[in-house]
């Protein structure tokens, strides 16, 4: 009888191409010949992993957690790996492998690299979370973001994901990841940081930021201009202060946009240019109390007679929402579309 290991290369290639990706990962572990053969194969000859979401995060006491999954009921799978620095081990639900003297961060990054080799369709979401502030200073987990960046560089191709979520405790780490995401695929950027203020002047210059459709930042964005956000159909972002002139710039951009949905622009310092807004847009409908007034204006849209921009200005935030003309309160004036 012939053994699987004696199959000609073309046959093995065919078997691998027609296997599911978990089987190929298993075949890699069968023997060194298979491992070398599979690792030397061009990525195009590997089956699609059909993974929808990958997340890697620092978790608990010096742990790294890597999860990949597809929640489609027909394909459903979810695999979780815990890499423990203290135990120097990799665990799944079923077993724990002790990795002796191997650097555990390298193992986690290599595993992710291997999984990415099989990614052919777009990911729905890539979530990277590096909260390392509680770790000992000398913990190897601190190097995770830099090692991921090095691995992405080596990949020689961008990662195709629709949503990118990054949670960091150090603002400099965002730029270790963002440039390696495919800007044509990326739709949605979600950035979180436990650092209150993040300088985003380099982030807003990336193709990824410029081509994305939605953005959410859970921190005060330093060095951000309204020109950096007006192209989004949805944004949630907070800056330090906002002027009437900047709000008018956004009003113009949004009323001439055809795909704007809704947004929120926060400001740390109290907004005190309400008079200037009334000079520009006419009287507002004022509600709320005098301590926290809410001023609302309505604007006609360039491309739709049925839709209206509702713009609410409060002390610490401005909200922009597209509503139906019929939902405008009685008596409220809808300012006609005006591009100036």
């Amino acid at each position: 009888m012939s053994s699987l290991s004696e199959m000609p290369e073309l046959v093995l290639e065919n078997i691998i191409r027609l296997s599911d990706f978990r089987s190929v990962l298993t075949l890699r572990q069968v023997c060194r010949d298979f491992l070398n053969f599979i690792d030397d194969l061009n990525d195009s000859k590997l089956p699609d992993s059909k993974i929808e979401e990958i997340s890697i995060n620092t978790d608990g006491p010096e742990n790294i957690c890597l999860v990949y999954e597809n929640l489609d009921p027909d394909l459903f799978f979810r695999h979780e790996f815990i890499y423990s620095v203290r135990k120097n081990s990799r665990s799944t639900y079923l077993k724990t492998t002790h990795l002796e003297n191997t650097n555990i961060v390298d193992v986690a990054v290599r595993d992710l690299e291997l999984i990415l080799k099989f990614q052919k369709c777009n990911l729905e979401r890539l979530c990277l979370s590096f909260f390392t502030f509680r770790l000992p200073n000398n913990s190897s987990v601190h190097t995770l973001a830099i090692k991921l960046c090095d691995m992405f560089k080596e990949l020689n191709r961008t990662i195709k994901t629709k949503n990118l979520t990054i949670q960091m405790d150090d603002q400099s780490k965002f730029m270790l990841i963002i440039p390696f995401i495919d800007s044509d695929t990326l739709e949605d950027i979600y950035l979180r940081s436990i650092v209150k203020k993040v300088n985003i002047n380099r982030i807003v210059k990336t193709e990824q930021w410029k081509k994305a459709d939605k953005v959410q930042c859970d921190f005060f964005a330093l060095n951000m201009n309204v020109e950096d956000i007006f192209h989004f159909s949805q944004f949630t972002i907070t800056t330090f202060s906002i002027s009437a002139k900047e709000l008018d710039f956004l009003r113009k951009a949004i009323t001439s946009s055809s795909n704007f949905y809704s947004s929120r622009l926060g400001n740390e310092f109290i907004f005190n240019e309400s008079k200037e807004l009334s000079n520009l847009w006419g009287p507002a409908i004022v509600s709320g109390n005098s301590y926290s007034p809410k001023r609302t204006w309505y604007f006609g849209m360039k491309n739709s007679k049925e839709k209206v921009l509702e713009l609410i200005s409060k002390n610490f935030c401005s909200r922009f929402e597209i509503i139906k003309l019929e939902d405008v309160p009685n008596g409220a004036i809808v300012n006609e579309y005006n591009e100036n």
Binding site: M1, S3, L4, I15, S23, L27, V30, C31, D33
Partner: peptide, 28 residues
Amino acid sequence: CKQVAMMVKGKSPEEIREIWMIPTDAED
């Protein structure tokens, strides 16, 4: 090849080694 792929699916490396008569690296 599809049939072989089906037969490999869901098996552990040890099972594959046993069923398909593949020596371990040490044996090799």
